[in-house]
């Protein structure tokens, strides 16, 4: 893999300089929290050892997305949002979030249901991820097929070498970006050695905690297992885990109207909500927390694997960190594994 070097200052200048001709999304501190947002003049891009609270999901699959608007006084007329050719740069996301885009690609960019809203954003975006020199104890990315320096989903993967970044060129899109900018220079042997040491240390820091293959085997015929009676017990049924999850992608479609005009929106939904599966008849196939928790685990670690040969979890640890009752997905998977 081709590797380049760029000074951090030079990269920041390059990114802020591009804000005129493209949208640049990066982590910025807002009221004490790190969020990914489109940078505006004056924003300071912040790469810290902490991950952003919300994932990159919003940038490709917004929580509230207009599909089209209409006016009932003009029957048959629908206005789609403009698809733009405007280029986008996503910088500073972690490999777990970059990996999540490969999960999204299976859903929204597959053969069966290509989604123009997602594809528009995805194809116009170059993803520059930054590897994790200091993974957190809530990280389990190595278990889910990624890792602190995984290149999956990224066009460029950066390794923080203090004053500069070592840039791994992953895709052709990444290569063109590097070629367009003179601030990138070829990496040397010494920098490659430093990289090896950093990658090695970080990879060792993410301890193996769950084994998705073993979990999958249990899940294959575990639909009626007793384990589901217990593991949902303390869950309060909120959507924190699903909404902070970089891979959860279930949605609802709703209309918001004012007078004769309205918008049809795609909004996030959560399988943890009882109304997610409420039928018009009043029946509900997932009546209790038990069925809903089973669905969440099954979707991520069985159904998605059956359909796409990858787990729908990147081990980012957000659900672990932010669950209001500390219901840790790693503990759930361990319980399933020994069930």
């Amino acid at each position: 893999m081709k590797e380049m070097i760029i000074k951090k200052d030079a990269l920041m200048n390059l990114l802020t300089g591009r804000a005129d001709d493209c949208q640049v999304f990066a982590p910025v501190e807002v009221e004490g929290s790190l969020v990914i947002k489109e940078i505006q003049p004056g924003d300071e891009i912040t790469i810290s050892s902490m991950n952003t609270k919300a994932s990159i999901k919003e940038t490709f699959f917004p929580q509230r997305e207009r599909l089209f608007s209409y006016d009932l006084s003009k029957p048959g007329e629908m206005k789609e949002p403009p698809f733009s050719d405007r280029k986008r740069i996503v910088f500073g996301i972690r490999p777990c979030d970059a990996k999540s885009l490969t999960v999204f690609d299976c859903v929204f960019k597959g053969k069966d249901y290509p989604d123009p809203y997602y594809i528009d954003k995805r194809d116009n975006t170059i993803v520059i991820a930054v590897g994790c020199n200091e993974p957190s104890t809530t990280c389990f990315c190595s278990d889910t097929g990624a890792g602190p320096f995984s290149t999956d989903g990224a066009d460029l993967l950066l390794v923080d070498l203090d004053g500069s970044y070592l840039v791994r060129v992953v895709t052709e899109k990444g290569e063109s970006f590097v070629n367009e900018n003179t601030a990138f220079t070829e990496a040397g042997q010494q920098q490659a050695e430093t990289r090896d040491a950093i990658v090695d240390k970080a990879t060792k820091a993410v301890h193996a905690q769950v084994n998705p293959d073993k979990v999958k085997k249990k899940l294959d015929d575990g639909f009626d297992s007793n384990v589901w009676d217990i593991i949902h017990e303390k869950c309060i049924g909120c959507g924190t885990c699903t909404y902070l999850c970089p891979t959860c992608h279930c949605f609802d479609i709703v209309d918001e109207t004012t007078g004769t005009t309205g918008e049809r929106l795609r909004i996030w939904d959560s399988c943890m909500y009882p109304f997610f599966t409420l039928h018009a008849s009043g029946g509900n196939p997932r009546k209790t927390g038990k069925e809903r928790m089973r669905q969440r685990v099954m979707h991520k670690f069985k159904y998605f694997v059956d359909n796409n040969e990858m787990v729908a979890c990147t081990g980012c640890g957000r659900c672990v960190k932010y669950c209001p009752v500390n219901l840790d997905i790693r503990e759930i998977l361990k319980q399933i594994e020994v069930s």
Partner: peptide, 22 residues
């Protein structure tokens, strides 16, 4: 707010079977 309803679901007094918001 991201409408995750963690506030509502953590509240001992939000025991309505159907919340008006749903």
């Amino acid at each position: 707010c991201i409408r995750c309803y963690a506030c509502r679901n953590a509240c001992p007094f939000c025991f309505c079977e159907e919340c008006s918001v749903d």
